[in-house]
């Protein structure tokens, strides 16, 4: 069995996003970048499936700028067997990413695609669902548990009202939530080994796909700031303020 895992290079979640002065976007100059945290869970799950003998090969895919190679090398250091980078300097919308992803799925014929449920930069939460739609495959989103057996996947999903379980035919696209597993760290020897693992690069233009964006970002703004609060000295003062000033209790 083969697993294809999608990984995206994003601003490190510990770094506060800063809006550019010209409001054209977020300033990523010299910012610390990392693998999207949900994608780390997807990579971890794929590696565990291979370690368990369920899966023979784990292929990592990234679609983005040349520096996404760092993110793929990280996936290789964590244990992916090889990587594919589709190069584009454009920032593609999830629909376009799903189309590119589909083209790679058609080349690679994986039995399972794993992706993070959302990227923490655009917070779209779309790519996995869109990819499965374009492939005509079933989807299982927000997975916190995954079990493969007899050509199907039993997936526990984190939904607003609790935990939902569904059973999907394979091949399938599974988008993963943070509680699916605890991602490992790459060891130094594995980081060194990852430099020699195969990483195939291709240009987006060579795939001949329509990846034009449908949306224009008019501006990116700072969120409205909250007025500064006050420090109260005691519980009694807090209760008094909530009753008489904020009038919320």
């Amino acid at each position: 069995m083969k697993v294809l895992v999608g990984v995206k290079r994003v601003l490190d979640p510990q770094v506060k996003a800063r809006v550019k002065a010209d409001k054209s976007g977020i300033d990523l100059t010299n910012a610390k970048m990392t693998m999207n945290p949900f994608d780390e869970n997807a990579v971890e799950e794929a590696i565990r499936l291979r370690e368990a003998g369920t899966v023979e090969e784990v292929v990592a895919l990234s679609i983005g700028a040349a520096k996404s190679e760092e993110t793929l090398r990280n996936a290789l250091a964590l244990g992916a067997d090889r990587a594919i980078l589709v190069l584009t300097e454009d920032v593609l919308e999830p629909l376009a990413i799903a189309k590119v992803f589909k083209a790679i799925v058609e080349k690679e014929s994986p039995d399972l695609v794993l992706v993070g449920k959302q990227a923490i930069d655009d917070d779209c939460n779309q790519t996995g669902q869109m990819l499965s739609a374009l492939l005509g495959w079933p989807q299982a989103t927000f997975a916190s548990k995954l079990e493969l057996a007899d050509g199907t996947a039993q997936v526990t999903r984190e939904v607003d009202s609790g935990l939902e379980t569904i059973n999907v035919n394979m091949p399938a696209v599974v988008s993963v939530d943070l509680r699916l597993n605890e991602p490992r760290y790459a060891s130094l020897p594995n980081v060194m080994k990852a430099k020699r693992k195969p990483l195939e690069k291709m240009d987006l233009a060579d795939l001949g796909l329509d990846t034009a964006n449908r949306m224009t970002t008019i501006e990116v703004m700072e969120p409205p700031a909250r007025a500064a609060g006050v420090i109260v000295e005691s519980v009694a003062e807090l209760v008094e303020k909530l009753r008489n000033e904020a009038k919320v209790i």
């Binding site: 923490i120 917070d123 008019i218």
Partner: peptide, 14 residues
Amino acid sequence: PVYAGNAMAKVQSS
């Protein structure tokens, strides 16, 4: 909202 609400994007759809 984008970036966990640390920025707000105004977008136009075609």
